[in-house]
Simulated scan of single mutants.
Amino acid sequence: MLNGKTVVVTGAARGLGRDIAIACGRHGATLILGDILEKQGLETAARLTADGVATRFIPVDLGDPESIASFGRDIAANEGTVHGLVNNAAIATNVGGAKLEDIDIELWDRVMRVNVRGTWLMTRALSPLLPEGARIVNMASDTALWGPPRLLAYVTSKGAVISMTRSMAREFGPRGIGVVALAPGIMKNEATDYVPAERHREYETRRAVPGPQFPEDIVDIVAFMLTPHALPLTGQVIATDAGFTFN
């Protein structure tokens, strides 16, 4: 499905990003992994390489514009072309935590720097490397579709990613490049261990298909969105939460 394609996945050191990278590698992609977690990122790259997937890890901090620009320059110098970009890197904070009047301003700004500005800057850095037929997948969240309380910074940032996706689809469309947003719900993995048990239970009982959801339930959807077949979906936000929300 992705044979001959070079795919960049951010936030790929662990959790959903790692599993997206594994799925893309299984479908034949050459992988470039980016994450601020260098030790774990190198371990993920080594695991994929051992499985026969051409993989390279580049450390990157989505909160630092120069780090993102350096990431782009590295890829331009070494690969030259990127056929798929998965903007997965993000930070989630105060899940089930602070009310809107209690959110720390610096925390708010950090979430926006990484989740919103970081997604824009990563796309900007790699834009010159995207040929006709390339695909961009922005990982949003179904929280932006239903608006849970005590999660305002994260929900706002993911709502911005959805709006950004629509505008990007218009800008990249004339180049034959598709852009979509996926909006998963809470999944069971090590990256969500901090989420309160009641929030996990809420998702598991209110999904149209009840029960927990795992990264492996959605990673092949991400891989499909990187193929030529996904172009008719450009600009769309697709909830991938087993029917917790309907969009």
Results as ranks from 00 to 15, higher is better:
residue 158 K to N: 06
residue 158 K to G: 03
residue 158 K to Y: 09
residue 159 G to L: 11
residue 159 G to F: 12
residue 159 G to Q: 12
residue 160 A to Y: 07
residue 160 A to W: 12
residue 160 A to T: 10
residue 160 A to H: 09
residue 160 A to N: 11
residue 161 V to E: 05
residue 161 V to K: 07
residue 161 V to S: 06
residue 161 V to P: 03
residue 161 V to Q: 02
residue 162 I to Y: 06
residue 162 I to K: 01
residue 163 S to T: 14
residue 163 S to C: 13
residue 163 S to N: 15
residue 163 S to H: 12
residue 164 M to L: 15
residue 164 M to P: 00
residue 165 T to C: 11
residue 165 T to H: 12
residue 165 T to M: 08
residue 166 R to W: 05
residue 166 R to K: 15
residue 166 R to Y: 02
residue 166 R to P: 03
residue 167 S to K: 07
residue 167 S to Q: 13
residue 167 S to W: 06
residue 167 S to H: 12
residue 168 M to E: 15
residue 168 M to L: 15
residue 168 M to F: 15
residue 168 M to H: 14
residue 169 A to G: 12
residue 169 A to Q: 12
residue 169 A to L: 13
residue 170 R to A: 11
residue 170 R to V: 14
residue 170 R to H: 10
residue 170 R to I: 07
residue 170 R to W: 03
residue 171 E to K: 07
residue 171 E to S: 13
residue 172 F to L: 13
residue 172 F to R: 05
residue 172 F to W: 09
residue 173 G to W: 01
residue 173 G to S: 10
residue 174 P to F: 00
residue 174 P to R: 01
residue 174 P to L: 03
residue 174 P to I: 03
residue 174 P to Q: 04
residue 175 R to C: 00
residue 175 R to F: 08
residue 175 R to D: 06
residue 175 R to K: 14
residue 176 G to K: 00
residue 176 G to F: 04
residue 176 G to T: 06
residue 176 G to L: 03
residue 176 G to R: 00
residue 176 G to I: 03
residue 177 I to E: 03
residue 177 I to K: 01
residue 178 G to Q: 08
residue 178 G to M: 08
residue 178 G to S: 11
residue 178 G to W: 01
residue 179 V to M: 10
residue 179 V to Q: 10
residue 179 V to C: 08
residue 180 V to T: 15
residue 180 V to Y: 10
residue 181 A to T: 09
residue 181 A to H: 08
residue 181 A to D: 11
residue 182 L to G: 00
residue 182 L to N: 01
residue 182 L to A: 08
residue 182 L to Y: 08
residue 182 L to Q: 00
residue 183 A to D: 10
residue 183 A to N: 15
residue 183 A to C: 15
residue 183 A to V: 00
residue 183 A to G: 04
residue 184 P to S: 05
residue 184 P to D: 05
residue 184 P to K: 02
residue 184 P to T: 07
residue 184 P to W: 06
residue 185 G to T: 01
residue 185 G to L: 02
residue 185 G to Q: 00
residue 186 I to N: 05
residue 186 I to T: 13
residue 186 I to W: 10
residue 186 I to K: 02
residue 187 M to G: 04
residue 187 M to Y: 01
residue 187 M to C: 00
residue 187 M to E: 04
residue 187 M to V: 03
